[in-house]
């Protein structure tokens, strides 16, 4: 077997700055796209369950298209397609010292819009899993739809949404590789660049695979901790009253305990 072990160890343990930048970009893309996708997905889910038929239909159509076409196609369409069609061109945006290149913006938009469609279905299922009696009780004490969603239904739907959300983020970490086709220098494209310079495909792709495996493994640990916090409310009575409080409260108290 032609495997250059020293080369492999070198790139695994002492990655170049470009490589670390690629890793950073992968993380930032994943977190931002997942956050935006979840927020948009929430609105899409509510629209999908709306009493207004046109809105419901529009959201169904949106979900149908985004889930029914390849993400790779969507990425190219949004960045290259829209520009070529003279509809919209993503330009670099300068925020003081930080410049966000157009292709990164387009990648983020594509990943977020795609994720929103999947999250919409997950959140819709979560909301449907909450006993309708909860909604009726909330109405009977004078809550409006917006208030009862925010205070009663969504906090309970979170229990059903969190496990698949973790799954989605895991997939997102790997889906970011697709934006390499529009030249976003994330982890995979950085690897490809290195490969074409060194011709060490086997070694470098083993390295990048291990990097992704590390990311998803670390996330798995975080995910199982979050899921614990979203279990039966009575089981976590000690950890605080709100879900946020419970989660962050335990993280904080854990940190305090370690220091003490």
């Amino acid at each position: 077997m032609n495997f250059d072990w020293p080369f492999f160890w070198h790139y695994l343990l002492r990655p170049s700055t470009a490589y670390l930048n690629g890793l950073m970009l992968t993380l930032v893309l994943s977190v931002v796209a997942q956050t935006l996708g979840t927020a948009l997905g929430l609105f899409a889910a509510l629209g999908r369950m709306s009493r207004m038929a046109p809105l419901r239909l529009a959201m169904r159509g949106y979900i149908w298209i985004m889930r029914g076409t390849p993400l790779l196609v969507q990425i190219v369409f949004i960045y290259t397609g829209l520009a070529a069609g003279g509809i919209y061109r993503f330009e670099d945006v300068s925020l003081g010292i930080l410049t966000i290149p157009g292709n990164v913006q387009a990648g983020l938009v594509a990943l977020s819009l795609n994720e929103a469609a999947y999250m919409a279905e997950i959140i819709r299922a979560g909301i449907s899993s909450v006993d309708p009696g909860q909604t009726e009780a909330a109405k009977s004490v004078g809550m409006t739809y917006a208030l009862l969603m925010r205070r009663i239904v969504l906090p309970q739907a979170a229990r059903f949404v969190v496990p698949p959300l973790g799954n989605e983020f895991n997939a997102m970490l790997k889906n970011t590789t697709l934006v390499s086709v529009i030249g976003v220098p994330e982890l995979l494209l950085t690897t490809e660049t290195l490969t074409s310079a060194t011709f060490r495909v086997f070694e470098l792709y083993s390295v990048v695979a291990l990097y992704y495996l590390t990311l998803t493994t670390l996330w798995g640990v975080v995910q199982s901790r979050i899921e614990l916090r979203f279990g039966e409310p009575s089981q976590q009575a000690k950890a605080g009253s709100g879900f946020g409080e419970r989660f962050f409260g335990s993280v904080l108290s854990g940190a305090v305990r370690k220091k003490a």
Partner: peptide, 10 residues
């Protein structure tokens, strides 16, 4: 309500 419908997370 017949089935109480207490807010389960409260």
């Amino acid at each position: 309500f017949q089935r109480f419908n207490l807010f389960q997370h409260k």
